[in-house]
Design a protein around this nucleic acid. Structure first.
Length: 904
RNA sequence: GGGGAAUUAGCUCAGUUGGUCAGAGCACCUGCCUUGCACGCAGGGGGUCAAGGGUUCGACUCCCUUAUUCUCCA
């Protein structure tokens, strides 16, 4: 056992004290110490302590977030990678927002579910198995932490006939040696609780769980803990799951034995803290209390006073962790995929603050520093990123509160409408629309309705919700077939750094059906194709055999396997293929990738060392680079960056690539490790002059071949994060030429020899003054025409009838004339015809007093006369228009209007 | 990836089965009043109603396409 040598007795003493104090429930071992104790324990058992993988998963389409400690070892279990150490232990940050064990809407209502949590785990990759796993589990909990034996239960797998798996007698026998009364303490569990599977297919095996009974003595006497295991009792809980991976499930459902057997264990750290600290709730441990106290200080709502507040405080404390860790890993809140999950979690926290605590302004961002203090030791990314995290949370909170504000307005309007109709039920469809289209939470809708003595048709709402889910699910079904193995070779050697063409053999293939579209996936023994990774898109190209040529449309990486997406499967899979990468695209991609390195370097030189890469996208056509910076780049800064980059291009720095460098060495060379990026134990370093980066991508041999780099755009993508887009080489040439052409064409249009800008400014000024002049003229000519017409007016039936045909193509002008007359004189009917582009138009205006007193209607008149021009029309009682194809009929139409008035 | 919504003045937004309807507040400009924490009063400039098609006598309003943004689902 490894303990702190400077205080050799402290640990032992502490353990003894714990045993003594456990029943009185006043033990205080800080979470931080407990975590270290776990590491030291497994180090003493020959384990290598590794760091937590990022919580946000990249390069795995089936998983958005790390949801268990074993995720980062998935490819080892699948046999795609050899482990460096056969015994490993760590603490992994995990996120679970849905699935059988957890649902986001439940978190906070009980005292032991979380979105983000830490999972302690120890692993054996084909090394030790059930015996050691069980013995060490027991030793750690009972002997090291001093958890009394009579509070522990173990479960084992009861067996399953369908799968042909026997009862796990082996596990039972080892537990039997630990407990003094095994019959009482070891329970059997069904497939549901005690058989672990990675997915529908893949590695799986029986598991054995350890449960703790935390109830008072009195309670324990009443009902045996045995009755409460796996029954959802808040104080009789599972804390450690030991999984014994010994099978592989094929897609036909049949289990086959694995050649190597593995151990995968996971212990909920928050629960362990609760047990060790003698608390009844995870939220009472020091992990959460510091944050909860801060929320209370801000909101004035103390914990433990009433249930409604407590739920809100728990929700906020939990969600703060999930959101902060995600942002630290580089996952910003956004409107799809992983980013959307984060947004939803944060919004839920805001909602609880709003509903239950009555906080109507951003406040969660204020909690980030406290969280960084509490957990920054183990997870330094929180400490270094805390300012940026706070900024992003603030922006997100502000935006959502605005959404809420808009929704409140809408719902007020709806309530008014309902009142008018004397109804008190809001249709589910309406609430769903508010939720679906405007993001207004349904529980708030319900709350507000209740305050107004109304309620929601919740069933209707859920129906709509179900419809939408079905729609999305139908669309997203992916059917993945089994790998068919042709040659049993593990992994793929990547030869693409040296060559773009290679002789390859197909080792396995499978079908993947997405949206009814079949995609053919191939794996080779070695390949020159670069798989999408690190922002660089996958290679395209083709494979050819003697009688076939097949296009490769993309290359991806899944669980460390390089997979080629082919147009179709070759008819003969066993022959040698010549695999050839599309060279032109590869070169263009390399230009862009190397250029991102130069841009990164230039940004740091010019803006400062706070600039860090936050993401990038490199395609053959363009590049995108996201980085942290607090404000918009000025024009000067942008041109400085561009100038420095292009200088480095001209200096023609050769690429210096070093492979198999240890992480420490790479960092000492000046390379930057990015938080949220998963690196292997050995890394690849790419240097161009002073630019040093950890990078697995393909690059130019020397910067000169990039030719030229042109920044195309710069903008914000989130608070504190900016994005630069750029083009290089021939694409940059095209871009610049296009711009210059525009300038040339503009200049020749302007016939300008001097400054184009001045010419355009002059043109705009002239244009606007001309506009005004024209308006004046039009008004004048309208007055003249008006006068002309009015002079020719006749009196029919005591009505002044003004009519005539005008030459104008402006319907606005006609309307102007009409309105002018209407406003200036009563007792008038105006009928004007005009011809534009071979079509006839007629306008009828009737003075308001005639409409009122004599019931003369412009619409009636226009319908009466529109036939004469082969047209139709309509309008309002005082103004109507019609159009038709027969201009020759205009005089007849005017005459008919006169007749009409005569009769009325 | 799939649904829905939005885009109107520099900003925040109104705009009622398609017809004097292109508006408000803030900001801006001019003048007056005189300074007290968003001073007040009077007047004024500013909009291709996101872009492009279509339907119609007539489109900010209806339909289609595109762009951008928001939002929900996976």
């Amino acid at each position: 056992m490894v303990i702190d040598k400077s205080k050799p007795n402290k640990l032992i003493l502490q353990t003894k004290i714990q045993v003594y104090l456990h029943n009185t429930m006043v033990i205080k071992m800080k979470a931080q110490e407990l975590r270290q104790l776990f590491f030291e324990f497994f180090r003493s058992k020959g384990h290598n302590i590794v760091s937590s993988a990022p919580m946000v998963v990249k390069n795995d389409p089936t998983l958005m977030f790390t949801n268990a400690g074993m995720n980062q070892f998935k490819d080892i279990f699948l046999g795609n990678r050899q482990p460096l150490n056969k015994r490993v232990a760590n603490s992994q940050k995990c996120l679970r927002v849905s699935g059988k064990h957890n649902d986001l809407e439940e978190v906070g209502h009980d005292t032991y579910h979380h979105t983000m949590f830490e999972m302690l785990g120890n692993w054996s990759f084909g090394d030790y198995f059930k015996k050691e796993a069980i013995e060490w589990g027991w030793e750690f909990l009972v002997k090291r932490l001093g958890i009394p034996e009579d509070r522990l239960y173990a479960t084992i797998f009861e067996g399953n006939k369908e799968d042909n798996v026997p009862r796990d007698n082996e596990a039972y026998s080892y537990w039997g040696k630990c407990f003094s009364n095994p019959e009482e303490r070891i329970l059997e569990g069904s497939k549901k609780d005690n058989f672990w599977e990675m997915g529908e297919t893949g590695p799986c095996g029986p598991c054995s769980e350890i449960h703790v009974d935390m109830r008072d003595d009195k309670e324990r006497k009443k009902i045996s803990g045995k009755e409460l295991v796996n029954k959802g009792h808040p104080h009789v809980i599972e804390i450690w799951n030991l999984v014994f991976i010994q099978y592989n499930r094929r897609s036909d459902g049949v289990l086959e034995q694995l050649p190597l057997k593995h151990v995968d264990t996971g212990m909920g750290f928050e629960r362990l803290c609760m047990v060790v600290q003698g608390k009844k709730s995870n939220y009472d441990t020091d992990i959460f209390q510091s944050v909860i106290k801060e929320i209370s200080a801000i909101t004035g709502k103390a914990y433990g006073v009433n249930e409604k507040w407590d739920i809100a405080l728990r929700v906020i404390a939990d969600h703060l962790r999930a959101v902060s860790f995600s942002i630290a890993d580089g996952q910003l809140p956004s409107n799809n995929k992983a980013g959307y999950v984060i947004r939803r979690i944060l919004r839920r926290a805001v909602r609880y603050g709003y509903n239950c605590l009555g906080i109507e302004e951003p406040f969660i961002y204020k909690l980030v520093p406290v969280l960084a203090r509490t957990m920054g030791n183990q997870y330094p990314e929180l400490q270094t990123g805390k300012e940026q995290i706070a900024k992003i949370v603030f922006a997100e909170e502000t935006a959502f509160l605005k959404t809420l504000g808009k929704g409140l307005k809408m719902i007020e309007r709806m309530i008014t409408d309902l009142r008018k109709e004397h109804k008190n039920v809001l249709a589910g469809k309406v609430a769903f629309e508010m939720y679906d289209t405007f993001g207004f939470p349904v529980d708030l809708t319900q709350l507000i309705l209740k305050e107004n003595d109304m309620h929601l048709d919740f069933n209707g709402f859920e129906d709509e919700m179900k419809n939408q889910k079905d729609r999305s699910r139908d669309d997203a079904t992916v059917e993945t077939g089994d790998w068919s193995v042709i040659k049993d070779i593990e992994g793929t050697e990547f030869t693409g750094y040296e060559k773009t063409e290679d002789e390859v053999l197909i080792t396995k293939y499978r079908n993947v059906k997405v949206k009814g579209k079949m995609s053919c996936q191939l794996v080779f023994n070695k390949t020159p194709f670069y798989a999408e990774s690190g922002g660089q898109t996958g290679d395209t190209g083709q494979i050819t055999s003697e009688n076939e040529k097949i296009a490769i449309t993309d290359t991806i990486k899944e669980n460390n396997l390089i997979i080629h997406i082919a147009k179709k499967f070759p008819s003969d899979l066993s022959v040698v293929f010549s695999a050839k990468v599309d060279l032109e695209k590869r070169i263009m991609t390399a230009n862009n990738h190397s250029a991102t390195h130069l841009i990164h370097f230039a940004l740091r030189s010019i803006l400062g060392k706070h600039v860090e890469q936050k993401g990038s996208l490199v395609t053959p056509d363009r590049l995108r680079f996201d980085f942290s910076h607090f404000s918009k780049l000025s024009k000067e800064e942008l041109s400085k960056v561009e100038a420095l980059v292009n200088r480095m291009v001209r200096e023609n720095h050769s690429a210096k690539v070093t492979i198999g460098v240890s992480m420490e060495k790479a960092l000492s060379m000046g390379a930057m490790a990015l938080f949220g990026e998963k690196y292997g134990d050995m890394v690849r370093v790419v240097e161009f002059g002073k630019s040093v980066e950890l990078c697995g991508g393909t690059h130019v041999d020397a910067t000169g071949s990039i030719g030229i780099v042109k920044i195309v755009s710069e903008g914000a993508i989130a608070a504190g994060i900016r994005r630069i887009e750029a083009v290089t080489a021939s694409k940059a040439e095209e871009y610049i030429n296009e711009k210059l052409n525009t300038v040339d064409e503009t200049a020749s249009l302007l016939k300008s020899t001097g400054s184009i800008k001045e010419s355009v400014e002059k043109l705009i000024a002239e244009n606007s003054s001309m506009k005004k002049t024209i308006e004046k003229f039009q008004a004048q000519s309208a007055t003249i025409m008006l006068k002309d017409l009015v002079e020719k007016a006749v009196i029919i039936n005591n009505i002044r009838f003004v009519s005539g045909q005008l030459e104008t193509d402006s319907s606005d002008l006609l309307k102007n004339i009409a309105n002018h007359i209407r406003n200036s004189s009563d007792n008038t009917v105006l009928v004007i015809g005009s011809e534009t582009r071979g079509k006839a138009n007629i306008l009828v205006m009737v003075s308001e007093n005639l409409v009122r007193e004599r019931n003369i209607n412009a619409t009636t008149i226009i319908k009466e006369i529109a036939g004469e021009i082969n047209g139709s029309g309509g309008g309002q009682p005082f103004l109507a228009t019609a159009g038709g194809k027969n201009p020759a009929g205009i005089p007849r139409a005017l005459a008919k209007a006169a007749d009409f008035l005569q009769k009325s």
